[in-house]
Design a protein around this nucleic acid. Sequence first.
RNA 1: GCUUCUUUAGCUCAGUUGGUUAGAGCAUCUGACUGUUAAUCAGAGGGUCCCAGGUUCGAGCCCUGGAAGGAGCGCCA
Length: 479
Amino acid sequence: MKRTKISQVLEQSEVGSSLIVKGWVRANRGNRFIQINDGSTIKNIQAVVEFENFDENVLKKVTTGASVAVSGKLVESQGSGQAVEIMVETIEVLGEANPEEIQKTVMQPKRHSLEYLREQAHLRFRTNTFGAVFRIRHAVSFAIHKYFNDQGFFYLHTPIITGSDAEGAGEIFHVSNLDPKNPPLTEEGNIDYSKDFFGKQVNLTVSGQLEAELAALALGQVYTFGPTFRAENSNTSRHLAEFWMIEPEVAFNDLNDNMDLTEDFLKYITNYILDNCKHDLSFLNEREIKEQQSKPQKDRNELTLVERLEFVRDNDFKRLTYTEAIEVLKRSKPYKKKKFKYEVEWGVDLQSEHERYLVEKEFKCPVILTDYPAEIKAFYMRENEDGKTVAAMDVLFPGIGEIVGGSQREERLDVLKRKCADFNIPEEDLWWYMDTRKFGSVQHAGFGLGFERMVMFVTGMTNIRDVIPFPRTPQNAEF
RNA sequence: GCUUCUUUAGCUCAGUUGGUUAGAGCAUCUGACUGUUAAUCAGAGGGUCCCAGGUUCGAGCCCUGGAAGGAGCGCCA
């Protein structure tokens, strides 16, 4: 007989049927009730053992963390905690787990802090919280592919090793095969990268956008979904050195189309999780409610996790320009009471405190800010009629901040050349990018979604290190 | 990189003004019980009080330096 997954046992199997389940023991109560989890669902199956009829030496090994195979009949449960349970006919311990050692891991049957779980990232998959988080992470990933596929987008694989940092999006990781102790030198005494593997200096990608634009200007609508690397010394709950990013790019779209796409996309993902991850979501929802109870009133969320997701799904995002946002901030209480640490002035980039005020206090919903001053945004963003602002957009989410950054791209070759000069970007390094503006250039737009930030939003996790299996942060690349 | 907080048993944490043998809950072990729901009951074991130095008759507690982790900020997604 083949094993039946626990998700299937609980949702589809008929009472009275004989089956085999395999999984890991979560708890063994009174030598009679064994809670088994196989990862297919957050729910456990309860296996009931008439211990009098079984070998004591086998039952002794059925401890928390051990793996077991159990066969028996599915019956209605006499207890109130579950609808069905398995009356065990045979039980086999597949892999033992020494309780004295289990005690030193996160697998002991008790609550742990997220910080402690992070130290055992290889074992935290076995916990309810991380099981839920990573099943949902998968579902978000799948929903993204499904959405784009249904909308006629093509999934484009952009390179991880690239030769240019033209976008200037943060610090980069260099990739080299040269001997660091004894690198070949040029006549001037600099490292001679022409002798390196690729014959030039290369780095890990910080964005697949420029490459995605090339494909969009042929395939019409494409998206990337891959790892991204930033060598910034960022020590926050919202930054990773290695993270995943989704970057759709659509020919013929303007900024408004771009905003419509972003909003529809984010609502689709949110709704997909509400529809397809009910058990995991409900566990995380309860978990958050319990956690909130130990916090002071002012630090608590006004809405529960599920309510926040429903809110995003059901309400329009607030759209306003950067210029309007500055005016709103200048009329705000914290501005008048001089509570903001950073200045609010047209031309200066908004700080987290300003974004948080707009999202969490003023509008209390996701906000899309558009038309930023050209100086504070990237060179490829399309210049507006006023000559001062560009067709950029940032989507701000409560508790997370910037979750999406995008723009309509500059499709006019002459303007793009001027912008390169303004930003000190050597045009010749980007000859392949400039070429698309020579041959049938069209307006187009796209955005980048921080995947882990989206997973944070739908799981309610407040530290980005808890939504990626193996986080890479400054001074930390364990596992 | 900056600011700030934390570090005491396997985990979460308490530890009064610097004063006898450093405590609790959970976990682990032993036994009891056996339709439990983080099972329950009784008992036991378990400590480099983060590290190094200093002050003091005496330091978990005070001082100096360091390390690790959290939160916030900057950079950004």
